[in-house]
Design a protein around this nucleic acid. Structure first.
Length: 345
DNA sequence: TCTGGGGTCCTAGGACCC
DNA sequence: TCTGGGGTCCTAGGACCC
């Protein structure tokens, strides 16, 4: 979906149309902490980008419309859109809140057919939800994803198998899926700037420098991706974390916050009929130094007091009166469905 | 410039078992 | 006194995604 959160907000509030809109943390007149979640194209004109500190966005454009993240609303709209998409295929994979992979290989004969299908999907989504999306068509998930990024908003990009290498070659290496900031830096350091540079690099050297990862990105640079489109329905972990309004060394405040986060994630655990075996806490000090500390219990649990007690024990060693804390979090993993657990007992 | 919150996957070392 | 080879599970940290 194109700038999904701000697009939904603008649909709900037509008065925002043609204004710069930013969804994210409260800017508090430029003193807010947190980041931009999504911004529309008008806001991008001012240099605002998603992931940017909200204070910096404020400097770029104080008169933009700043809105909090209304996750509930976006999830509802997302479900409706996913339902539309799912109808078109039998192999479907949701990817985050606003993206999806559709395997249309059994539904169309050729790329021309895929293009027509993509146009129909765009029309239906627009007609029913008044929202635009950008679609990429390719021989595999990797290429479809990169193609979908190529022209936005409201784009449709086809990359046929025979054109894959030529399409990828001029793109900067960070356009490749799984190549983020760190990997891009390392690649740049050895003279690799474009995907074409990477494709022409000696794969054995890449394997030596990056291990399995090196082989993976080398194949990606050639547009090779064997992964299947498949629904992931199994959750591996669930967690909550929060950044304090102000960094704090108040132990009671930290522990109470931790309890509240545990309560919140416990609610989700019970509602989704899971028990958990592992509790992990996360702490971030004011200097952004971040630690995690986890414990696997001898038994799976869905009792709030087990989770809270374990979390409190785990965080203890990190709490020092001379170190201010920026963020705390609780994550539950090693999930076992309550049904499965009953069978095991 | 000052860095959210929800996740997944991978790695490497250590404990432990046969 | 020196020390195999196979495996699983746990833990902490890091990179990546939206």
């Amino acid at each position: 979906m194109d700038h999904f959160f701000t697009a939904v907000e603008t649909r709900e509030h037509p008065e925002y149309k043609e204004k710069p809109v930013v969804v994210g943390a409260d800017p508090k007149e430029g003193k807010g902490r947190g980041v931009v979640s999504t911004c529309n194209y008008e806001a991008r004109e001012y240099g605002i980008r998603s992931g940017m500190p909200i204070s910096r966005a404020w400097k770029h454009c104080p008169h933009a419309v700043y809105l909090p993240v209304n996750h509930k609303l976006y999830t509802e709209v997302s479900s409706k859109i996913m339902k539309i998409l799912r109808k078109y295929v039998d192999k479907f994979e949701q990817w985050g809140i606003d993206e999806a992979f559709l395997d249309v290989s059994t539904k169309v004969k050729d790329y021309e057919g895929a293009k027509r299908l993509a146009q129909r999907i765009k029309q239906e989504v627009y007609r029913k939800e008044e929202l635009t999306c950008s679609i990429g068509v390719g021989p595999n998930k990797l290429m479809a994803k990169i193609a979908s990024d190529f022209k936005k908003p409201n784009g449709l990009t086809l990359v046929e198998e025979k054109d894959v290498e030529a399409f990828l070659a001029p793109l900067p290496v960070n356009k490749l899926l799984w190549v983020g900031k760190k990997t891009a830096q390392k690649l740049n350091a050895i003279g690799i700037e474009t995907i074409g540079d990477l494709a022409n690099y000696d794969p054995s050297v890449l394997a030596e420098k990056f291990g399995v990862w090196g082989t993976q990105i080398y194949l990606s640079a050639h547009g090779i991706d064997k992964s299947e489109v498949q629904e992931r329905w199994e959750v591996k972990s669930m967690g909550r974390d929060t950044t304090f309004e102000e960094d704090t060394s108040d132990v009671n405040h930290i522990l109470e916050t931790l309890d509240a986060l545990a309560e919140d994630v416990h609610k989700q655990l019970v509602e989704s009929n899971f028990t958990c075996k592992t509790v992990t806490v996360k702490i971030r000090y004011e200097n952004f130094e971040t630690h995690t500390h986890g414990k696997t219990l001898p038994f799976p649990t869905d009792r709030l007091r087990d989770i809270q007690k374990t979390a409190r024990e785990l965080i203890q060693e990190f709490l020092r009166h001379d170190r201010k804390v920026r963020l705390v979090g609780v994550r539950l993993s090693n999930l076992v469905s309550t049904e499965k657990q009953r069978r095991l007992i």
